[in-house]
Computed example of a mutant assay.
Amino acid sequence: MMGAATNGQACRRGSGKLRAIVLGSALLLASAITLPPLTSPAVAQSVYTAVLVNDVPISNYDISARSALLRLQGASSSQAASRAEDELIDEALQRAEARRLGISVTQAELDQALQTIASRSGLSVSQLGQALGQRGVDLATLRDSIEAQILWDQVIRARFQATVRVDEQDVLAALDSRSSDEGGSELTTTEYTLREVVFIVPEGSGANTREQRRREATAFRSRFESCAAGISAARQLNGVVVQAESRRFSSDLSPELDEMLQETPVGRLTPPEDDTEGVVMFAVCNKRDVRSDAEARRDVESELRNEEGRLLSRGYLRDLRASATILRPNN
Rank of each mutant, 00 (worst) to 15 (best):
T325I: 07
R159N: 04
R318N: 13
R235H: 05
D144F: 12
S251N: 15
G183E: 14
V290L: 15
R247H: 14
S292T: 11
T190Y: 02
V197N: 01
P255Y: 09
D299M: 07
T49Y: 06
G24M: 01
V47Q: 12
G239D: 13
A42F: 14
Q212P: 00
T39K: 12
T209A: 09
T270H: 05
S145F: 08
G309A: 04
T34H: 03
G3C: 14
F160A: 09
S205G: 04
N208T: 05
V266L: 02
S59L: 14
V284K: 03
R159Y: 00
G278C: 00
V22E: 14
V171S: 08
A68M: 06
I326V: 13
V266N: 04
L311P: 01
E259T: 08
W152Q: 11
V284S: 11
L69P: 04
A75C: 13
A324S: 14
C285S: 05
S104G: 11
G184Y: 10
G133F: 04
A75P: 07
F160S: 15
R314D: 10
R314N: 05
R314C: 00
L72K: 01
V197P: 02
R297Q: 14
Q94M: 14
P265L: 13
A113P: 04
V51F: 10
A75Q: 09
Y192F: 11
E168I: 01
